[in-house]
Design a protein around this nucleic acid. Structure first.
Lengths: 197, 197
DNA sequence: GTCTATATGATGATAGAC
DNA sequence: GTCTATCATCATATAGAC
């Protein structure tokens, strides 16, 4: 990876491909876009993309790996890591609400889960790690939040974290099928239950 | 539809196609199987399937329409409709647990939501109706359950129903990505929260 | 190092045989 | 009424031009 540490305003071709592929992935699914679609949009030939990502498997794996790097970076940002738990949870909800506002994109997990068995093994492995790390992070947030009295739930933090993340991924899918309303309803219900009054 | 009211032990070709297509749909996703896959498995040529379902859109729409008919039939069965609310909820959970035991199949909604924008309009419409009717049914179950003191939750029955169904669909997706454990954990959490102790 | 012309096979669908 | 031979198109991927 020769990508500069400080993102340029004019992304290189590799990054432009990744960004566009991510658009397609989150809007139409991994098995519903092709190198032709990418090439047409980028104004190049399909084989030009094969240079940067020899196979679609490579491209897909790079997409999930990038998202995993982003998760770790986000989670460790001072403006996230140093927040109190209830605001960390709000920051997480904001990410999903941002997806909703971005043409009702589903999240990475929600995009790949149904097609999971058709994905290349490295991509499956990256997605498992992504989901595991996110769940572990939220479990920790919930544990601290309950201990300090700002968050409320029964059962174990790990179970609640798995449930909440699953619900959020699903809520974006429901928004995709209907409209923004059910997402708002579901997240409203989560807030009602989690935030200690 | 010339399908007999009493299902035969030797399904006709049309039904065999639908059954197999449903297998593929719930195990690999709508954009990850072809008429060739179906034909090879059934021992016929791809074009034979085109006779029964002229386009893949027709096949997909028939799949969702059949599931909608099944939902209505199930919901109205005396052994479901006449149960007390907490047992109706258990019957619903049993459907999802059955999916889990069936090679961790996702549910219809969970299978189609991510690819939704690539689906033909009639299929989209059927899926919306399917999800709406299921949510309305569960909202009614939850409302009666809370009124009679056997189920417990805050917020509106409609919001809780949307949240629970979304969580169940998502839980099967998580099981697909990892293993059965997170599904059990999530459904255990749902039970802990919903069933009045 | 970056991309284009081209190959090979799979895909959805039609026209016509039985 | 049911299915097969065949088609045009699109898929991923390679070999080689610039």
């Amino acid at each position: 990876m020769l990508t500069p540490a400080t993102p340029s305003l004019v992304p290189d071709t590799r990054t432009r491909i990744l960004d566009l592929a991510e658009d397609f992935l989150l809007e139409r699914g991994f098995n519903a876009f092709s190198y032709q679609h990418l090439a047409k949009e980028l104004g190049v030939k399909p084989a030009a993309i094969h240079y940067h990502f020899p196979s679609k498997d490579d491209l897909g794996t790079a997409l999930v790996a990038r998202q995993l790097r982003r998760l770790r970076k986000w989670r460790d940002l001072p403006r996230v890591a140093d927040l109190p738990p209830q605001q960390q949870l709000e920051a997480l909800l904001a990410v999903y609400e941002n997806h909703l506002g971005h043409d009702r994109r589903v999240c990475l997990f929600g995009s790949l889960a149904a097609d999971f068995r058709t994905l290349p093994a490295p991509m499956q492995a990256e997605l498992r790690t992504f989901n595991r790390e996110l769940t572990e992070w939220l479990a920790q947030v919930l544990a601290v939040g309950r201990a300090t009295g700002t968050l409320r739930f029964v059962g174990s933090p790990a179970a609640k974290a798995a449930q909440v993340l699953t619900t959020l991924a699903g809520a974006l899918q429901v928004a995709r099928v209907h409209d923004e309303t059910p997402f708002q309803v579901i997240v409203g219900q989560l807030r009602l239950e989690l935030f200690a009054s």
